[in-house]
Amino acid sequence: MIFGLDFSAVDWDEMFTGTLDTLKMLGNSAVFTIILGLPIGIVLYLWGRSQIPFVQGFYAVLSFIVNILRSVPFIILVIALIPFSRAMVGTSIGVLGTIPPLVIGAAPFFARLVETSLREVDRGVIEAAQGMGASTAQIVMRVLLPEARPGLLAGITITVVTLVSYTAMSGMVGGGGLGDLAIRYGYQRYEKEVMIVSIILLVVLVQLLQMAGDRLVRHFTRK
């Protein structure tokens, strides 16, 4: 008994499974968020810089869609996307059912971070590449992405940390993982011990992710 809490009642097997589920959701959704968000971010950057009026129109539309997705609270997005998840992966609950809303929720956020870090790339370097006859694709692959690498890694770190809290929220609608445990035991059954352990594990996870991200950013920073 510590502070009147009895940790012997905690089912550690269940805690372990919960942690594993959280990591699965996190890993999968992070990969798909990057696969979806990176190209969107690049397109936002390229269209946003264009001088051609109809391309500027495309930018406005895409930017608007991204803003809408970002302004819907995640918990509502999860519920709204239940039919979508069923269509995509055949279920709307558990680890698998949570991945589509996680990706849809985080990708627009990540895309904006990508756009911002690409904008930080020195214009002069891009011009130098243009002057050397580089095509737009070559500028993206050989100039923008390598030059923005520290910023992109920082963006990925922020996105993954955000995804941790999203996975926890998805526990509200049967998402599974540590968030699910915290809600089921702590909120619905008043078993504070499981909730506290879940929260501690989430805090540790976020700390580790942030530390790893910071290290990577430092490693690739050349300025």
């Binding site: 002069g124 370097v125 130098a128 050397m132 006859g133 095509s135 100039v143 030059e147 690739f220």
Partner: peptide, 19 residues
């Protein structure tokens, strides 16, 4: 793009890839 390859350019602020 083809013709630009035959025109080199250097800049006041060098514009090198920092990465």
């Amino acid at each position: 793009q083809e013709h630009r390859r035959k025109i080199g350019m250097i800049f006041q602020h060098f514009n090198l890839l920092s990465s």
